[in-house]
Amino acid sequence: MQKRLCKSRTDKMIAGVCGGIANYLNCDPTIVRLITAALVLFVGSGLILYIIAAIVMPYET
């Protein structure tokens, strides 16, 4: 079965994007959230990328 990048319905804080990425990469969601927070703080486009991912990524079934 092929893996799909989807937003998480169960492991989410805002939109489930970080939980879905962590599930896809088989890693801890906290690490993905910390990396996302660093991108938002230090790279201005991090927030825009998160919003785009929240809109484009489907929810897991």
Rank of each mutant, 00 (worst) to 15 (best):
L49A: 11
C18M: 08
V43T: 14
I35N: 09
L25G: 03
A37T: 06
L47T: 07
C27L: 05
I14E: 15
V32W: 05
D28A: 09
I21N: 02
L34W: 04
D28I: 08
Y59V: 00
N26T: 10
G44N: 10
Y24A: 01
A22N: 03
V56P: 02
K12P: 06
K3P: 03
D28K: 11
L25D: 05
T10G: 12
C18S: 09
G16P: 00
L34D: 10
R4G: 07
G46I: 01
N23M: 11
Y59P: 00
I51S: 06
I52K: 11
D28L: 07
P58L: 05
T10N: 14
G16E: 00
V56Y: 03
L39T: 10
A15E: 14
I55D: 07
D11V: 11
T36W: 12
M57N: 01
Y50D: 05
A54D: 03
V40H: 09
G20A: 02
S8A: 13
G44V: 10
A22Q: 02
C6K: 11
Y24Q: 04
L5E: 03
C18D: 12
Y50A: 05
K7E: 02
V40Y: 08
R4N: 11
I35H: 09
C18Y: 09
M1V: 08
G19M: 05
D28N: 14
K3S: 05
Y24F: 13
I35P: 05
G16C: 01
Y24V: 01
V43K: 15
I31A: 11
Y50G: 04
I55P: 01
T10Q: 15
G20H: 03
C27D: 04
A22S: 06
L34E: 07
I35L: 14
I55S: 08
L47A: 12
M57S: 00
T10L: 13
S45I: 15
R9N: 02
C27N: 04
Q2P: 09
G20W: 03
I14Y: 13
M1T: 10
T30D: 15
A38M: 09
S8H: 06
A22D: 00
V32F: 05
T36Q: 14
C27P: 04
T10V: 13
G16T: 01
R33P: 03
I52N: 08
Q2E: 14
T10K: 15
S45F: 15
A38V: 12
V40W: 07
C6W: 03
A22L: 07
C27E: 08
G19R: 06
S45M: 12
C27S: 04
K7M: 05
E60Q: 07
N23K: 15
L39Q: 15
M13C: 08
C18W: 07
Y24R: 04
S45W: 14
A22H: 02
L5D: 02
A15N: 13
I51C: 10
Y50H: 11
F42Q: 04
A53K: 06
L41R: 07
N23V: 08
V40E: 09
N26S: 13
T36G: 03
A38H: 08
T10F: 12
V17T: 03
A22G: 04
G16D: 00
V56C: 07
P58W: 02
M13K: 14
V43Y: 15
K12E: 11
L5G: 02
